[in-house]
């Protein structure tokens, strides 16, 4: 099965948050739970970047190791999901996640996170967020392609190599 990854190109992000709205409506995510969130980072020099963050489906997923009931599992495409039936709501996954990806669902008393829209991916579509991004700031492709295109680290953002996240960044600016 193909393995996938995510590519963020911050110079293209205009904070329109279509990715967030796409995720909410496709996955019927309730109020208060934000599986994908555009976060704005400002350096001490006043340089601002906007990044659409969510679960990065790390190869070495600390959340998975931290979960006491093994509620987090990985599908054949490499996507990590939380099994709501098993989750005890202890929030250990969130404590160990470097990306604020697992979110507390107060109504169901479980943790939730991005599962990479497996229904869409199986149907040959992009995950909702990447499909609806108008600028190409958020892209989804096979991990081999992403690894070739982007770099692993970017200013302003914590991106510990230890979890081996499936995310890369475009640092090149526009031509000219």
């Amino acid at each position: 099965m193909p393995q996938y990854g995510w590519l963020l190109d911050p110079k293209r992000c205009v904070e329109c948050r279509a990715c967030e709205a796409a995720c909410k409506q496709w996955n019927k995510v309730p109020f208060g739970v934000r599986l994908r969130q555009v976060r704005i980072y400002e350096s001490s020099a006043g340089k601002v970047s906007a990044l659409a963050g969510a679960c990065n489906h790390c190869d070495n997923a600390w959340c998975m190791k931290a979960c006491p009931v093994k509620a987090i599992w990985r599908n054949a495409n490499g996507a990590l999901s939380i099994d709501g039936g098993k989750c005890l709501g202890c929030r250990q996954c969130a404590a160990f996640c470097p990306y604020q990806a697992p979110q507390w669902n107060e109504d169901l008393k479980v943790m939730q996170k991005c599962d990479q829209c497996p229904d869409r991916v199986e149907a040959g579509q992009l995950p909702a967020c990447a499909a609806l991004c108008p600028t190409g700031a958020l892209r989804f492709a096979t991990w081999d392609d992403i690894k070739e295109t982007g770099v692993a680290r970017i200013d302003n953002v914590s991106n510990p190599a230890g979890t081996r996240p499936r995310i890369r960044f475009v640092v090149a600016g526009f031509p000219g």
Binding site: R17, A18, A21, K24, P134
Partner: peptide, 15 residues
């Protein structure tokens, strides 16, 4: 106009 895309507001129209 949108050339296949919407902003976050348009995407949230149903809500």
């Amino acid at each position: 106009h949108g050339a296949g895309h919407l902003c976050g507001k348009g995407t949230s129209s149903a809500n």
